[in-house]
Amino acid sequence: MIAWFRRHYGATPLHLLGHLAAFAVCIYALTKLLKGNFVEYFIGGALLHDLVFLPLYSLLDRVARGGERPVRYANYLRIPAVMSGVMLVVYFPLIFGSERVNYVHDTGRQPPEFLGRWLLITAVLFLISAFSYAVALRRAR
């Protein structure tokens, strides 16, 4: 019986039950959300990440390394780039001042120079990395 089920469904009955239960919760929650442009954001987020963002940073990585072959300095570029990139991905609304007006209304003061701070942090990260690369080169000699 189980074997028959497995052959036709592809997994155990428990797998089917679990999925049906979770789909019921998802469909209930989604019916509450089908207003405004929710669907665009929900599906769009996944598509944007999988088909634009990820290929883009992979390509950037490859270009920076100058092709397929592994180069020694690659990771000295990658680590600060990833650190700074994640900061940008998370805090870009503040860094680019997208919601300056909301910030002033909410806090009663002008936003600090988030862009300047991020650039400065990025510069420091690359400097530290360049220094460690120099040290590594000297050691290798």
Partner: peptide, 25 residues
């Protein structure tokens, strides 16, 4: 948390029900 609302839905509602979709998955 950055007071950035580019969308046309209620954040509280969407974040709440979105949590049910994400957590059940």
């Amino acid at each position: 948390v950055q007071l950035y609302y580019p969308w046309h839905f209620n954040f509280v509602e969407a974040h709440y029900y979105g949590a049910w979709v994400f957590c059940s998955a």
